[in-house]
Amino acid sequence: MNIYKRRKIINAFMCSATFICATITLLPLISIFIYVLSKGASSLNISFFTHLPRPVGEPGGGMGNAILGTLTLIGLTCLWAIPVGVLSGVYLAEFGNNKFGAVVRFSADLLNGVPSIVIGIFAYILFVVPMKTFSALSGAFALGLIMIPTVMRTTEEILLLVPRTIREAALALGISQFRMTISIVLKTALPGIVTGILLAIARIAGETAPLLFTALGNEFWQRGIMQPIAAMPLQIFAYAISPFDDWHRQAWAASFVLITIIFLMNFISRLVIYLQRKSLKAK
């Protein structure tokens, strides 16, 4: 066999091998979605969204409290993590082009890489141990620490895409640098920042480990942010490791709802970020 033929065969073989790798990577995604859909959709009904969980043996019941709990946790988290994340993103983009900015960037990446269970026990000793109670508040703190690095880095990325000319024009008109940052640059980049936030929310919506020792979970409707609170991932975990078929069905339904929410948020945010980049680059 001559060398040309051999090269061609190797080329075709290896290129198809990479195609197979891509298929192997995506296959589970599709099969997982179909599997969860087929298992979960049949257990979904109105009472799943409105009722409390029932004890073992009693059929029916729902996860109304866990759905509400997850929404509450997300709301509480956003309340503090969005301002901190966005402002630190602003810091990095506008003033972070130095050694100190590099340190901030590195610590954001590190915070992003710290196992979520470690963040969970950090929130546990910071809030739960001194307050002597598990609480929604401590859960929101832990989730915030996971959310901030994501929001921060996407904000930075988007702000850096804002064209120099816009900044220069604003400065030339005589406004100060901070005014320019807040009312011109942030405003231009707003859609991008919002999508970054949506992505971060999609990520924390499914987090379980940091909530184990902070939000703890709750069988009943929540009674305030200083009390334990139910959350969908926690409920899925508790039901999944139980031996009861009925609970498994509920866990599938909850997985289906959770995955649907997360996929929708991802989809919307990708779409917006795509349009935003396109329009910014066109300018």
Binding site: L29, A202, T208, F237, H248, I259, N266
Partner: peptide
């Protein structure tokens, strides 16, 4: 399409992946 799919794969909560792993 592949890039979007991979980002979705990253977004599946680990507790759901664990549950599926347990059952299948």
């Amino acid at each position: 399409i592949l890039k979007a799919g991979i980002e979705l794969l990253a977004a599946i909560p680990s507790v759901v992946l664990g549950f599926i792993g347990m059952i299948t």
